[in-house]
Amino acid sequence: MKINWFTVIAQVINFLILVWLLKRFLYKPILNAIDEREKKIISQLKDAEAKEEKAEKEKVEFKQKNDTFDLEKKELMDKTIAETNVQRQKLLDEARTEANKLSSKLEETSKENRKKLNQEIAKKTQQEVFAIARKTLADLASVSLEEQSVNIFVKRIEELTEEEKKKFIEAFKATSKPILIQSTFELPHKQQIEIKKSIQEILGAKTHFEFKTAPELISGIELMANGYKLAWSISEYLDSMEKDISEILKEKSKEKTEKKPETKTKHDVKEDTDEKIEPKKKVVFEKKAESEKK
């Protein structure tokens, strides 16, 4: 249990050297490494924290943006839907108007067609009626009827007013040509004498007569003397009748276009045509009656 003082001194020196060595090779590098690592970790943590904060901020921002976007989307959607509805309504209205226009046009066209047809029918009917009447009268213009018509003609000459008589006399005096008397049929001698007699009564002098037949007069008789004309025939009646009828028709159609009824059912149209046709008939019959009367 001795203490070797040299050993003690040597060990003290050894220990101090070891302290220096370990400080140099162990503690310093290790502590530095630890410090650096800690710093690095801290900085990384800070970075991470900053990033997290940033991410959080961005998240909030994005959320807000998303919300805004959603809201805008919804608004746009609503707006679009509303606009679409309005547009749809507009288009529908337009289509409806167009359809109405088209249908009214169609109706108008058909009405026009119908009118035309009606007019055609009326015209045809009219023509037909006149043709029949003309034919019937032509057929019926028997001698007895011709006689009757001559009688009426004579009666008419006798019933001439003073003024007319005067005009007739003047016309007669101005020419030396014989008085021309046309008729659809050849006048029998008896009637010729009757006519001559009545004219001579008016003129108060003897004169020459020329008798001619003219089938276009249709059961009628005509007296011509130097531009003066005295006539009676069914044909004349028919002409004036036709004129009257077409005038009435014109007036009627004019009235119709002015009134222009908006919608008409088939029923109405039918009634309309009935109305149109009936007056013609009426007129024809009236004229017929009138002519018969005369």
Binding site: F25, I30, A33, K40, I41
Partner: peptide, 23 residues
């Protein structure tokens, strides 16, 4: 003591020679 000193110093040097400062 010398042997131990050598052992400690060399071991420290060998290990800390290639110190890594990363994670």
């Amino acid at each position: 003591t010398w042997i131990l000193m050598l052992l400690l110093a060399v071991a420290s040097w060998v290990i800390t020679r290639k110190l890594k400062k990363g994670i």
